[in-house]
Design a protein around this nucleic acid. Structure first.
Lengths: 205, 205
DNA sequence: TTGCTTGTTGGACGTTCGTACAACAAGTGC
DNA sequence: GCACTTGTTGTACGAACGTCCAACAAGCAA
């Protein structure tokens, strides 16, 4: 006979999707706090409040968890950009500027996100399926930018190179901003990007 | 009585600087081949052909070895750029273009270098002395670019932002080029950078 | 040749890692 | 209530990790 009156349940059984999501979020937090080196299965399980064995039950390895964490954060970034585009109204030029401005504001320009990015990048060269995931997400990001540029009236032949250039500029500014926040401010990064945007979109006309 | 006639010496004693350099180069090779996760003290010692204990004799930890490896590779990159500037002659504009063109040619645009960069970046946020090293090397890189821009006649007030923008653009293109080499070619990256360079340097006049 | 300095070795140590798995219990259908 | 499914636990295991250090030997000075 077992008494279960005054004691809490030993664990709660979660929906598989919800549990996966909580593990992904715990992974992002540990990566942000401890860096790549300190992000072990045990640390992530502790952060998520579950036992170490459960991580292996949902993900074949820590690489897969990092890959899903990257996809999760990329989705958050994408949602933040969508919100910024929405708020910018319908003027194509304003939408394009909102795109780059949002890239240097919270929650995107956060040094904590960088750790997840770096962990993912470190897997790209050695794991082919992760390289494929990176290619897809990069292509998706660039395609949206090409759409914005087209709405601004940029001729189709120029779209590809302009999108590559602006993506690289934003990525480079974002990277430096996260790595050494005192080199320049988010506001300055945005101003630089918008200025470059003006130079790039006018020079080709 | 020991016979040393037909057997090779058990080890050769190297100059401290030479031994440090060989460890640094072995570290770069292991990082390029195995990635951050596979770069242990043992693996690096094996690559350098020395015993594991020797790594600890020269470096207090693997972080310090990675930091010195980063500095070593940055010096190689800097030398490659200097050579490109030298070869470009004395015309300021040609020198500026040689600067960005060299950034996408071997030995700089190599996916193998990326692993060292990523390993270093992963330490920036958690180790303050490594953050300082990054700041210094970034500032140095940008200062040289500002010098080139000044020689091209750019007014002083614009130098800072233009240098930040071009550095970010080159870094972003270089990063994507290393991460997914099939997205665009080194030649296209160079063309994009030179085109952006023209747009940025003419718009401010 | 002899003695000294010190770069170098190689194994021992305690820790932490990822993984596997038997036992347990929460929730569900009957 | 009862049996069944399966999400979850906790631990055990071997491998690999960083670090340490006593012993060894290469090269130099005398």
């Amino acid at each position: 006979m077992t008494l279960q009156v005054s004691s809490k349940p030993a664990f709660t059984r979660a929906e598989p999707d919800a549990r996966r999501a909580s593990l992904v979020e715990a992974c992002a937090r540990v990566l942000a706090r401890e860096g790549v080196a300190g992000s072990s299965v045990r640390a992530i399980a502790l952060e998520a409040g579950v036992s170490p064995g459960l991580v292996g039950h949902y993900f074949p390895g820590i690489d897969a968890l990092v890959a899903e964490t990257y996809a999760h954060i990329e989705a958050q970034v994408s949602a933040a950009i969508d919100a910024a585009l929405e708020a910018a109204g319908s003027d194509p030029r304003a939408r394009l500027e909102a795109f780059v401005t949002a890239s240097f504001a919270p929650p995107i320009a956060s040094g904590e996100l960088l750790a997840t990015w770096i962990a993912f990048w470190s897997l790209v060269r050695s794991r082919s399926e992760i390289a494929r995931q990176h290619d897809e997400q990069y292509a998706q990001f660039r395609a949206r930018l090409e759409g914005l540029l087209a709405e601004c009236g940029m001729p189709a032949p120029q779209l590809r190179r302009a999108a590559i250039a602006i993506t690289a500029l934003v990525d480079g500014l974002w990277l430096e901003l996260c790595l050494s926040p005192q080199a320049f401010s988010p506001a300055e990064a945005g101003a630089i990007a918008r200025q470059a945007l003006a130079a790039l979109t006018s020079s080709g006309r």
